[in-house]
Nucleic acid binder design. Structure first.
Lengths: 127, 127
DNA sequence: CCTGTAGTACGAGATTCACCGTACGACATG
DNA sequence: CATGTCGTACGGTGAATCTCGTACTACAGG
């Protein structure tokens, strides 16, 4: 599909001595598409990730979720969430730290994330 | 609140003289699943249907939407929405009348439909 | 340097999905 | 009954998706 990998122009501010190695492509605020967000949230595994992130663990590495899938599949799901604009990922050592893009989503689709998380809390089982 | 009961449970197409013909299977209120709803809304065509229904046209026949797809595909999309619990369909002559299950969705997933429709109104082009 | 950890990339296989055309059924009207 | 309208059901095709295993890269310590 249309790949929006424009090399992340956001974290480049303080990239001085930064690792300069990997950069992760995140869509800009205006590029977040509703269909993509809904599709990203429509999967049970990803919904659990989002639910867990919203439970207060603002920052979590991928491995902390204990998902019932393999490592590859886990990577895939985090990628879908990231490319849809639902989460933001950054490196920290060998780990990848995940965080919900709460403010961005609230600005673009007010009330959506809150409603989904509330709904998931009621119907989606926890870990 | 006129609870529509379960005019039909998930079983049809079975002998009997049939109650005046076609019956449509709708999920009960407690059977509406979040993932199914999100998946149903994640498609651009179905999102437009929902958006149009929410625009004030509470009751619309399938043909009134002028969707950019064939009749078969149109039927498919309405079926997905109905089975997910997003819309309710009933017969009226040769037409099928569609209506959003606004109250049901609000009861089960508060704020969800409103947030999605608001978001769609801002980013999804009209007919 | 070597080992371990955290995660990615690359296919591959199975399933689901969106789309279509054609054939058919139910209703209305002539 | 004949015709037209509205929609369903039944396949079928091509694309997308979910899942996995294996091989690889980047970082941290001993």
């Amino acid at each position: 599909m249309d790949d929006v990998d424009e090399e992340v122009s956001m974290g480049t501010s303080e990239d001085t001595g930064a690792p300069a190695g990997r950069s992760l492509a995140h869509p800009g605020l205006e590029e977040i598409r509703l269909e993509a967000v809904l599709h990203a949230l429509a999967d049970p595994v990803r919904l659990r990730i989002v639910r867990d992130l919203a439970e207060g663990h603002t920052d979590m590495s991928c491995i902390a979720f204990q998902l019932p899938v393999s490592k590859s599949t886990s990577t895939h799901h985090f990628r879908v969430l990231r490319e849809a604009g639902v989460i933001r990922q950054r490196y920290e050592g060998t780990s990848r730290i995940n965080r919900l893009r709460t403010e961005d989503l609230e600005a673009r689709f007010p009330g959506l994330l809150t409603a989904v998380v509330t709904a998931a809390r009621r119907t989606v089982p926890r870990a």
